[in-house]
């Protein structure tokens, strides 16, 4: 199996790895870099538990090869907190009870983060559309929507 050496930045830290062509990005993150906050919930790109930011775009890392991340900037759930301060999305999920088992949560928060970066006052429908690629079995989505709305309000207060 051909091996490739790749360089990538994850949560601001540079990494170098030598990987098989077939290694999925999610496995590189979880097993090689031990960033286990990014989860795996399906094999068909439906559940979104593995969502990360890939050069700023929300991407399902279970259907990206690690080699495709060569030279890219990635943000995972572990990179949301800055200087020991929760991001607005993380705080929104905490305040609004936007999670139960916590398994879909990292992917949901990454998708929510990407949404708020392009639209800081999304409507309920826009939030629902944005997270429609992330499945949650516990919350019925009601409080996830509220969590993202909470974060939107907080973000607007910070950057008027």
């Amino acid at each position: 199996m051909a091996m490739h050496t790749i360089k990538l930045t994850v949560n601001g830290e540079p990494h170098e790895a030598t990987v098989e062509s077939r290694l999925l990005l999610v496995h590189l993150l979880r097993e090689n870099l031990r960033l286990t906050g990014t989860h795996i919930g399906c094999d068909t790109t439906h559940c979104g538990a593995c969502t990360i930011l890939f050069d700023g775009q929300p991407v399902k890392s279970c259907t990206v090869l690690a080699v495709q991340a060569d030279g890219r900037q990635l943000i995972t759930v572990e990179g949301l907190e800055k200087d020991n301060k929760l991001s607005a999305i993380q705080d929104g999920f905490y305040q609004e009870h936007g999670l139960q088992c916590g398994y879909c949560t990292p992917g949901m928060m990454i998708t929510g983060t990407a949404l708020l970066e392009r639209n800081n006052s999304p409507s309920e429908l826009e939030i629902r559309e944005a997270i429609s690629g992330n499945l949650c079995r516990c919350t019925g989505y009601v409080n996830i929507v509220k969590a993202i709305q909470h974060a939107a309000r907080a973000t607007k207060q910070e950057t008027p």
Binding site: R30, G37, V77, E78, L86, Y94, G102, Y103
Partner: peptide, 15 residues
Amino acid sequence: EDPRFIRGKGNYVDD
């Protein structure tokens, strides 16, 4: 339980 989950620090079997 939320502080660990929102930081991606849960501890599921596959982790």
